[in-house]
Design a protein around this nucleic acid. Structure first.
Lengths: 252, 252
DNA sequence: ATAAAATGATTGATTTTGATTGTTTGATCG
DNA sequence: CGATCAAACAATCAAAATCAATCATTTTAT
């Protein structure tokens, strides 16, 4: 079993059960105790999980402990870098769609092109977009709890009135055969429409999303350009992806 | 059982029953008395619970403490009072439209009715609405700088797909002959539609808006119930208004 | 073929745990 | 009011579990 696969198996198990014991992880992966411990150390360093005596748990929220702000900025570095890469594709006079999500939010402040119009279905995107004085348009719709994305029939109908030069979307999973996927079917449908209504689509996905699948597929790999980050763990998988679609990866 | 699990189990049990005895916690977790005591010490240090002789209880909230409630009630302003008045009109299962603006924002936290659906075109309203766990729908549209209201053709079209039990709107001016008015024609149009699409409309206006006119009229006095505040200066004007429409005024 | 990286076993150090100890608390009764 | 007793408590200690560091071996990349 590949290191990369194994570490994702650990994170997957952690998402199903909020905590996992070492023995469970050994059982689930077939690796030795030493290897599991090394994985946990590495994943904790990446802030993907939190180690506890006897196993691991999902990372605690930022508000839990004081003095976390530095770690947060370290954790968002990947997203900032990917955001900068995405922003470099935006040209003067573009009309672009920006999907709800934290990855996509990071790109807005990096956009240097002039006279850009931003259309979005994300509450966080609106806030950031008006902060940076972009022409901002909002899809209507039902506000989903959690992601605060505007979805549903109203959002879909509004979407079809626009044509975008480019669309920038987040995702929960990138898989060689299943393509791009996200848990909520309604959200997936909006993403699907965005890809359809845009001349060029980009998927922003940090490396934790690679080799993952969620409930609903919203596009195949070739439908969009994948923007992600590369490190020694993901390099091999990125090569496989590159056979099917165009990939741009920033070094971390 | 892991330390982390056990401590969560303790906090869970405490949320169901506000206090728990040591014996109950031993029974619930299977750990020894020493371990439970250590957990309680640690959790008390984290302010997650309060130890009492024989067990533990939930920590007292700030609002429970003496001297806090007075500060909260003492800090009530005009808009808060008008907001509370407006909120009192909202009934169970209502679908209501809430206009962009600070006056209308104040009413949201005061709504006590159950199963309320909120439709809005205001960025600030969305934020407050989801904070209070209402079913929230958003009109799409162009984001106007300043008020952060969603306006334009898309907003108008979206508006026409809804029928509201009640609509709550802000205004810039209330005038005996010109009615209700606001500077931006696009915003005025959305307000006009909101009044048309609702069974009952309310205008929230603090007394500084009385006897004022703005560029665009969006309704005559009789189209809506005026919610405002009264003092000795405005009393006379309110009487004149009351001849043409229904007025509710809170004493300041 | 060689170097680099990942793995698994082993070791000693650290943490957690439950039992035991003596002390403190709070209720009961004279 | 104070003496008395049982329950609750904190402190300590040894055993068990978990952990980090090390090293030899295997796998992978060049």
């Amino acid at each position: 079993m590949l290191t990369f696969e194994r570490q994702h198996a650990i994170l997957n198990l952690l998402q199903k059960q909020k905590i996992a014991k070492i023995a469970e992880l050994i059982d689930a992966t077939g690796a030795s105790e030493s290897t599991i411990r090394r994985d946990l150390s590495e994943l904790e360093r990446q802030q993907k999980l939190k180690r506890i005596h006897g196993g691991a748990s999902l990372p605690s929220r930022k508000s839990d402990e004081p003095g976390m702000s530095e770690k947060i900025t370290a954790f968002t570095k990947e997203k900032e870098r990917i955001g900068a890469l995405a922003a470099s594709y935006v040209e003067d006079n573009d009309s672009i769609y920006i999907d709800a999500g934290t990855s996509t939010e990071a790109m807005i402040s990096k956009i240097t092109a002039k006279n850009v119009t931003i259309v979005t279905n994300g509450l966080n995107i609106i806030n950031t977009s008006i902060q940076h004085d972009f022409y901002t348009y909002v899809l209507g719709g039902y506000v989903k709890t959690g992601t605060h994305a505007f979805i549903g029939k109203a959002a879909a109908e509004a979407m079809q009135k626009y044509r975008f030069d480019k669309a920038f979307l987040g995702t929960n999973g990138v898989d060689l055969t299943f393509g791009y996927s996200t848990p909520d079917p309604e959200e997936a449908y909006i993403k699907e429409l965005a890809i359809r209504e845009s001349q060029q689509a980009f998927i922003l996905a940090d490396s934790s999303k690679l080799d993952q699948t969620s409930f609903t597929c919203f596009g195949s790999l070739k439908d969009a350009t994948l923007l992600t980050d590369s490190n020694k763990d993901t390099l091999e998988y990125l090569h496989k992806l590159a056979e099917q679609t165009s990939v741009e990866a920033v070094k971390i």
